[in-house]
Design a protein around this nucleic acid. Structure first.
Lengths: 337, 337
DNA sequence: GTGAAAGCGCTAACAA
DNA sequence: TTGTTAGCGCTTTCAC
């Protein structure tokens, strides 16, 4: 495989000239257009491709960032749909800026030194994006890997380099919007086994606070995804008309639809349903379920931009933000009967 | 940040000794245990982390592999659930073998030279895994990037380095199993706008062939995901008892459930349904839908192992395979009435 | 057992 | 406007 020296030799110029031209810095260095064209042609003819390692060694920039993800509950090693779509979208923005994104399980960072992925044992990444994982003792480990870290949708939240959703607002929004539709009694469904993610407390806080300030009835019910099917709680079966079901996330909403569907009950007709989160699970035929919308593309773009700013050396160009979502009426929570 | 020279100086040994010890080759080089321990302690104290770029430059191995993915229809830039879970699982196996996986859109490879991601313009990856994408003119481009390529679930299939599902068998299996349950009339739902993926022809071939050889009735119906909701085909509404619905994939099955659910009809009770593919979309409350199961973890492991073999220099240790799935009865297609 | 030194391919400072 | 050259941090051969 041809290298710069070969190109330079073939073109009868110095290595520097070849390097400058092939990096696109020809104009700045005022190298004649004829030379530039010739050198580029020769490079192409010899199938020249720069050696990323050599460049990285000189410039102390690898062009690689790591996106840390946490496997979803009960799915082996695959992150939940929301986190992975966020990662894919962020990855694209980073690509456009010349970076490549490695997707890695956050557990690797916490592992003992010898067990960690090469990418963490070695000096390899220019930056890090931690997505949607709960463990708290991550910070010091992360700091050792790269000072350029952005925390996305994470419990850890400080003045800079953090971006997440305003979960309390999401909870409040669901209740106030359903209240406008005439609902006065709410049953909030949350996960039985909490992961310790801030959204769990946040959404319930918002829901409860809004219900209290509006003076309406709010009950809560714990349920695991699986139990909704294997032993559906009595409280659900006894649900009377006029009550609105509010779920912690899209997955629970889906389970509810499945549960009632098996009884021949129709969402939005026989019962009202809204979700605090519009994750990808609520796509497909359930895209019209009432919920707080969440623009993951926007969040991904902002997160990527923050990381780019930080890697550019300007931490202060990445002030933390909490994003607010808007209500998406859908058709699963029509006017209260 | 400390480098090998610092460690060697601090320990009063040569750079070579430090290098050998810290790479864990101490025993082979018969370096005294005392020295080894001392050097490792010093490295830890100085927070030594090897420079991946320098190592890569010397060894001509970067430890990076790229996983090429194709965005799903209508989802912006996110691959479908099946492809991404496969990628995540494969990524884990590669991690264990010391590699880090960059997730990249396959479109980058096809882009013009200047538009391609740095990772493809430069010499950066040790290997490539192409997952589930249809474009045919990919091969020559891929060959330029890395000779170490494994094709997963892809139209391209030759003697080595390819792994995919036996789609014809999947189609046959659905029909023969439903036939055993007493069904004699089948309506096959497929996508209206084909992507050109081999599974589209394969599943239909299998379904049709099995139906013909069993001498039963088979009809097919084209439908897009969206149209199933906006303008549901008349043929579906007129579906009589005794017919079994067979869908191309899980997403279509989900749309069917949604469509009938809106009419208050229950899957597995009011109509029979089976899917040729059990993608992640059919998780959650719909995990019991009858289908051909598909063990993506197994496929991911095999694909990763093939890639490792090829990168190890032994292409012949990676013969192509077509994986067969088994039937998963579920509860959506009970004994025919 | 250990050390000295060459060199991987590239960039950038300096020289001409 | 272009060429020369010193390293970046590591691995590895060879000499001791």
């Amino acid at each position: 495989m041809a290298n710069l020296k070969d190109i330079a030799f073939e073109a009868g110029v110095s290595i520097r000239t070849a390097s400058v031209v092939l990096r696109g810095k020809g104009p700045e260095s005022r190298i004649s257009m004829v030379q530039q064209k010739r050198i580029r042609e020769i490079a192409e003819r010899l199938h020249y491709r720069p050696d990323a390692a050599a460049r990285a060694m000189r410039t102390h920039r690898t062009g690689i960032v790591a996106l840390l993800l946490q496997p979803a509950l009960g799915t082996g090693h695959v992150p939940n749909a929301g986190a992975s779509s966020l990662a894919f979208e962020a990855s694209l923005f980073l690509n456009d800026a010349g970076y490549s994104a490695c997707f890695l399980p956050v557990a690797d960072v916490l592992a003992d030194a010898g067990e960690r992925s090469a990418i963490f044992q070695e000096k390899m990444v220019d930056g890090l994006m931690v997505i949607n994982s709960a463990p708290g003792h991550l910070r010091s480990r992360i700091a050792q890997i790269s000072p350029n870290t952005v925390w996305v949708d994470h419990n850890h939240f400080e003045s800079f380099c953090c971006i997440r959703r305003d979960e309390v607002h999401a909870g409040e929004l669901v209740i106030t919007e359903l209240h406008k539709l005439g609902y006065r009694r709410f049953l909030y469904l949350e996960l039985e086994h909490l992961r310790g993610h801030y959204s769990e407390a946040g959404r319930w806080d918002g829901v409860k606070r809004a219900a209290e300030s509006l003076g309406v009835t709010i009950e809560s019910l714990d349920c695991s995804y699986e139990r909704l099917i294997s032993e559906p709680p009595d409280r659900l079966r006894r649900l009377e008309p006029g009550w609105a079901l509010v779920t912690y996330d899209g997955r629970l909403a889906l389970e509810v639809i499945g549960y009632f569907g098996r009884l021949g009950k129709r969402v939005g007709i026989d019962f009202a349903l809204a979700s605090c989160d519009a994750s990808v699970e609520l796509g497909g035929p359930f895209r019209a379920v009432a919920r707080v919308a969440f623009d993951r593309v926007r969040m991904a773009r902002q997160a990527a931009q923050m990381l780019l700013n930080v890697m550019g050396g300007d931490r202060h160009a990445a002030p933390s933000v909490e994003l607010r979502d808007h209500w998406h009426g859908g058709d699963s929570a029509p006017l209260a009967p």
